[in-house]
């Protein structure tokens, strides 16, 4: 079997990284173990749970369903990057004030999903929020407070339009 490594060049949260990894190395593992960005979580490695969601060139993607080499040259934003972005603060604030997280394992994925969702849907109703979140699984909160948090974040985002 071949262990030959390939070069991967990624801009993550604004910083460019170059690393040499096996082609089979998953983007999720690359972020977590090569770059130490452990806020991106792994819950299924099948694309179902959403815990590994990141922004890939500005759109959400499951980092467990991509090989790092496959997205070489792209820009990735992770929860660490979102946390440093003041304009996105209303989302995390709303999660905090509405108790929209318990164990927190699913939370980075929900936040990343919400970032994109509110960009696409600046004034969502409850049904739209549920649809927008339905591919992220949370086992703790029963979603009630997450739905409230996203509604509140929508109201508080700068300019109302993401």
């Amino acid at each position: 079997m071949s262990f030959s490594k390939v070069e991967v060049r990624l801009t993550v949260n604004g910083t460019e990284y170059v690393r040499s990894v096996e082609p089979r190395y998953l983007l999720a593992d690359f972020l977590r173990h090569e770059l130490g960005l452990t806020g991106t979580h792994i819950g299924c490695e099948q694309g179902v749970c959403g815990a590994c969601t990141v922004l890939l060139d500005g759109r959400t993607a499951r980092s467990c369903l991509h090989f790092a080499v496959q997205v070489s040259g792209s820009e990735v934003t992770t929860i660490e990057g979102v946390s440093a972005d003041e304009s996105l603060k209303p989302i995390q604030d709303a999660f905090h004030h509405n108790h929209a997280l318990q164990c927190g394992y699913c939370t980075p994925g929900f936040v990343m999903t919400t970032v994109e969702f509110l960009k696409d849907n600046p004034a969502p109703d409850e049904a739209a929020i549920r649809r927008g979140l339905t591919n992220n699984v949370c086992r703790c909160t029963g979603y009630v407070n997450i739905i409230k948090a996203v509604a509140e974040a929508a109201d508080n985002m700068p300019g109302g339009e993401g």
């Binding site: 499951r62 369903l65 999903t113 591919n135």
Partner: peptide, 9 residues
């Protein structure tokens, strides 16, 4: 088809 994240890719 799946969620937004799936259809983006």
């Amino acid at each position: 088809l799946g969620g937004t994240a799936h259809r983006n890719r």
